[in-house]
Design a protein around this nucleic acid. Structure first.
Length: 467
DNA sequence: CTATGGCACGGATT
DNA sequence: AATCCGTGCCATAG
């Protein structure tokens, strides 16, 4: 019923194949750059406007209404709907056609600065007056992403209660470089900790350490800290490691302009996902909507005017025009090819891992890339490329790497976490092995220890029995 | 003596 | 061919 504009896949030339391959491994952000430079370099390539759905802003098919918004009831809830989606709200830097009716600077390709980037994320949560406050706060950030003015000043300036300003600040802090807009490094750490604690376990005392031991913490005086807080040194060390690995006192400094996370960071904050999975109309009963982000605000095609003009091309330019034309059509084909592959891949993946997506990590089925490559009848390296470096946003708004879908042990690890969080008394690793066996997971004792370490859980003798 | 972490090996995965 | 991951063995801490 909802036919996507599939294009017949032509027999690939080697150049075609090579370019598709490299394109497949690009993230949405990288793809944006690629398209941008190609567009600038090749006059035969053009980007045209297309009609958009007035409610969801998705690109509309050639004729008719947006299939998602207009007839939601038509969809079978057992089948996910997968499609390529140019979502400029997720891609503020999306490339737009230079149309006459739209001021160019509105969606220009200029990279955004931090204040704009943050404001875009939170704009929908704020009413007009709060938006003003947010904008004001964001223009007073230093290069570290911290506020240079006090909240009190702002409140006085706008004649609003301090509480209002604080509320706006809290919303800002939750936006992408998490902790941005905090008043101090300490503040930034605390808000990051809050957000992290919603999704994973945090070591005991981490919060108190930051709260009251910030100065000692920043000077790495752990033993002094342990004495003053009356907490075992081991726990201080544990908490310290967690803090330095996962939190960042200067939220603006870190990865701004850098797409990839530092290797040692486990903070699940990525700038923008490559794929977004959500429920239709936010309703759990409705089917899953899967959008593969294409950072393109329109449709890319070979310029028909250019194509026509080729016959009248001046003799000395004819060759270069011709190569431009070929290059352009190759580029478009590769892009289609990439989209097609991504779409098939993600579709299969969503069907397979539905439980994981809707119910949580515990239900992840161990699937290897090889299995999937056989099902889709593509080479395994194709899957690898498609999966590498990409991120997915789940319906619960968490953004995770696409490779998590192929994690062989994530399910066991989460069961392990549950087990430990529900334990009455600290269980040793070998006891946990037996317990896991009852749940149908057979792992070695040594492996349990590894998983514990991965999840940042202390060994049994350092854990106190708690709720 | 038990529980755990380090090192390293082999097989699977990419 | 390179890398990742689970596991076994052994040293060490408690």
């Amino acid at each position: 019923m909802f036919q996507l504009p599939f294009h017949t896949i032509r027999p690939a030339t080697t150049a075609h194949l090579a370019q598709t391959m490299t394109m497949l491994s690009l993230t949405a952000e990288e793809l944006r750059q690629q398209i941008e430079s190609e567009l600038a370099a090749n006059p035969a390539l053009e980007l045209i406007n297309e009609r958009r759905c007035p409610t969801c802003h998705r690109l509309l098919p050639k004729q008719g209404l947006c299939p998602i918004c207009s007839q939601p009831a038509l969809f079978d809830s057992s089948e996910p709907v997968v499609f390529i989606s140019p979502r400029e709200d997720f891609y503020p830097g999306s490339i737009s056609p230079q149309s006459e009716d739209l001021p160019v600077d509105n969606f220009s390709i200029a990279t955004e600065d931090l204040p704009t980037y943050v404001l875009r994320q939170i704009a929908s949560e704020l009413d007009a007056s709060n938006r003003k406050i947010a904008a004001f706060l964001l223009t007073h950030l230093d290069e570290d992403g911290l506020l240079t003015i006090s909240l009190l000043e702002v409140a006085r300036y706008y004649h609003v209660p301090l509480g209002d300003v604080e509320r706006v600040q809290r919303i800002i802090q939750r936006a992408d470089p998490v902790g941005v807009g905090s008043s101090s490094p300490k503040d930034a750490l605390l808000s990051q900790l809050d957000i992290l604690s919603e999704t994973r376990l945090i070591p005991p005392h981490a919060r108190e350490l930051i709260q009251s031991g910030m100065d000692l913490l920043s000077r790495h005086q752990l033993s002094e800290l342990a004495r003053r807080m009356k907490v075992p040194l081991r726990q201080v060390q544990q908490a310290y490691r967690f803090i330095s690995e996962n939190l960042n006192p200067f939220p603006g400094r870190a990865n701004w302009g850098d797409v990839r996370q530092p290797a040692n960071s486990r903070l699940d904050v990525f700038h923008r996902p490559d794929v977004i999975i959500s429920y239709l109309e936010g309703d759990v009963e409705k089917p899953l909507i899967v959008e593969i982000i294409l950072p393109l605000n329109g449709t890319l095609r070979v310029n028909p005017v250019f194509k026509k003009a080729i016959h009248e091309a001046p003799e000395e330019n004819k060759d270069s025009w011709k190569s431009d034309l070929e290059r352009a059509s190759l580029f478009v084909k590769c892009l289609q090819q990439r989209n097609h592959t991504m779409q098939r891949l993600i579709h299969r993946l969503v069907v397979l891992q539905r439980e994981f997506i809707v119910k949580g990590e515990e239900f992840l089925k161990p699937v290897t890339r090889v299995q999937l490559s056989k099902e889709l009848e593509v080479h395994e390296s194709t899957i690898s490329r498609a999966v590498a470096n990409k991120t997915v946003q789940l319906p619960n708004k968490r953004i995770i790497p696409l490779s998590s879908f192929f994690d062989r042990s994530l399910n066991v690890r989460t069961v392990l976490c549950n087990l430990i969080s529900q334990e009455q008394r600290p269980l040793s690793d070998s006891e946990l092995v037996d317990l896991l066996e009852e749940y149908g997971y057979k792992v070695a004792r040594r492996t349990v220890a590894k998983y514990r370490a991965m999840e940042g859980i202390l060994p049994a003798h350092l854990r106190q029995a708690s709720s």
